[in-house]
Design a protein around this nucleic acid. Structure first.
Length: 480
RNA sequence: GCCAGGGUAGCUCAACGGUGGAGCGGAGUCUUCAUAAGGCUAUGGAUGUGGGUCCGAAUCCCACCCCUGGUACCA
């Protein structure tokens, strides 16, 4: 039994989760469930990035203590995951001082021991109003920040620790080029490679304590400095599986077999993270799956536009599997996609109510009226179907679902051609064979569906493994 | 600016040198076991624009127009 350690990007918990978080959770959960179904020993970790100054500032703005503030948002993320039927095996918080602070300091020390961390002065444009550094392109035409127009920025120098990323240029190039870290899709790999080939510069991995307002993980042996958020955030993937506090557990699960992330944080996962791990002498992740972003009705999701979609609203209105289905079927997993409630309703009626739901109803009713004796045992393992497994191995969820829907259409065609209702009327003995085939098909569909729509799959299975199959209430009642 | 990907039916996308396809929506028809569901059929397109190569181009080449992403220390 192979182990499969999967992680999804640790969200920044400064606001409640939106539909984009739901998308990533559902993707990772579907992969997790699929691996479980083919017999792997699976562990899924996610967690919360909590050590950024922005969290502290957001808490202040909300008039709350940071801990209280992050506790609340953590709860919201866990609630959304739960309602999505997304099962985290581990939820590792970045504010966990016992485990995560020690773990990140240990990682730092390992890199340091290897001679990859050094002190250097960093000069940048600092806005006193915002209390942060800006890049020239982040400023308006007068070279001022947008929050405080009219106020000149100061050139400020600060001593920070740097990580010798440049040292790993060749290593990273080889890692990506030869798919030792396999990046899906290809064009993201090429982007990362292009970035590497342009020449890697060392990057700063600490901030002064004043600048970070003491919020974050102290640098070992230098408490005037706080770790740069990404240095510790990425390490949540290790802390959660016991790095530094349960070596046995860590040995069992490291390294990551798959990281699921959004396109915006490719560099950190494809370049920084492998370099840091290599420097620390630790095992490297094997695969990186990068999905796109969601727009809402063709527009970017934003608070100012007021079009942020709350996944809980959708679940309450339509049901979990409807949202899961939409995200998995209607959004091509590697490119950007659009979330539209109008489209969701269309897909609901066409695919879930008319095709899947109605097939289940009609087969169940046929069995009931034929007083069919069901001999199909519950199947536990996904049958190896190339088209299906290939689509899943490339994380093309929409292709895998299209394949399943092809089966549904096939079953409807079969029923139409065999006309079992006539066979029942004529007391034909053939009705048994026909229903056997139909029931077998429905059970297979349920099985293939489990990673995607676990609740629905379970309902179908429960209805169809009984000796006497009777019709039940519609799985997906049509909506007008 | 540079690099990469894309612009195909009302919508989402497939075909990547050989008679333009699928799903959804819309139309017709058959059927009645089923959630007014299902099956079948037809309809639907100067394949972004303009040139070129070729017996033949959505596909290859050139130019142009639009869209998306990347182009390091905001995460």
């Amino acid at each position: 039994m192979a182990k499969f350690y999967i992680t999804s990007a640790i969200p920044y918990v400064n606001a409640k989760p939106h539909i984009g978080h739901a998308q990533e959770f559902v993707y990772a959960d579907t992969i997790r469930r699929y691996h479980k179904a083919i017999g792997d020993n699976v562990l899924y970790l996610c967690g919360a990035d909590e050590n950024a100054l922005k969290i502290f500032q957001a808490a202040e703005k909300a008039g709350k203590k940071p801990q209280e503030f992050t506790d609340e948002h953590n709860k919201e993320f866990l609630e959304v995951a739960k309602r999505l039927n997304v099962q985290f095996d581990i939820w590792q918080r970045g504010s966990d001082e016992n485990k995560h602070f020690t773990s990140s300091q240990k990682l730092w020390e390992l890199c340091s021991k290897n001679g990859d961390i050094y002190k250097k002065s960093y000069t940048g444009l600092y806005c006193v109003g915002c209390e942060q550094f800006y890049e020239p392109e982040e400023l308006n035409e007068n070279g001022e920040c947008f929050e405080h127009p009219g106020r000149k920025l100061d050139k400020v120098s600060e001593e920070n620790y740097f990580f010798k990323l440049s040292k790993y240029q060749k290593f990273l190039e080889d890692l990506l080029l030869n798919n030792k870290l396999n990046i899906i899709p290809d064009f993201r790999k090429n982007e990362a490679l292009a970035f590497i080939k342009r020449g890697l510069q060392d990057f700063s991995i600490s901030r002064s304590k004043e600048r970070a307002k003491g919020w974050g993980i102290p640098v070992p042996n230098d408490h005037s400095q706080i770790m740069y958020v990404w240095f510790d955030a990425l390490n949540i993937y290790q802390t959660g599986i016991g790095f530094c506090w349960d070596e046995k557990k860590y040995k069992k699960w490291a390294p990551q077999d798959l990281m699921v992330i959004g396109k915006g944080i490719t560099r950190f996962h494809a370049i920084y993270w492998p370099a840091i791990l290599k420097s620390a002498g630790l095992k490297l992740p094997k695969e990186l799956f990068i999905h796109g972003y969601l727009t809402v009705d063709g527009q970017k999701m934003s608070k100012t536009l007021g079009n942020v979609v709350d996944p809980l609203d959708m679940i309450n209105k339509y049901g979990v599997d409807v949202l899961r289905y939409y995200l998995l079927k209607e959004i091509p997993s590697t490119s950007d996609g659009d979330f539209s409630e109008r489209r969701l309703k269309e897909v609901y009626n066409a695919d879930l109510a008319n095709n899947l739901g109605n097939l289940v109803s009609r087969v169940a009713k046929l069995c009931e009226s034929a007083n069919f004796n069901n001999e199909i045992a519950a199947k536990t393992h996904i049958i190896e179907i190339e088209e299906y497994t290939l689509a899943l191995s490339e994380y093309k969820f929409n292709d895998a679902l299209s394949f399943i829907w092809g089966k549904i259409t096939g079953l409807n065609q079969y029923i139409d051609s065999q006309k079992p209702w006539d066979l029942v009327k004529n007391n034909s003995p053939r009705v048994k064979d026909v229903l056997n085939h139909a029931v077998d098909g429905v059970v297979e569909v349920a099985l293939l569906l489990e990673p995607f729509l676990p609740e629905t799959a379970k309902k179908i299975e429960n209805q169809f493994i009984k000796q006497k199959i009777i019709s039940g209430s519609p799985l997906f009642p049509r909506i007008p």
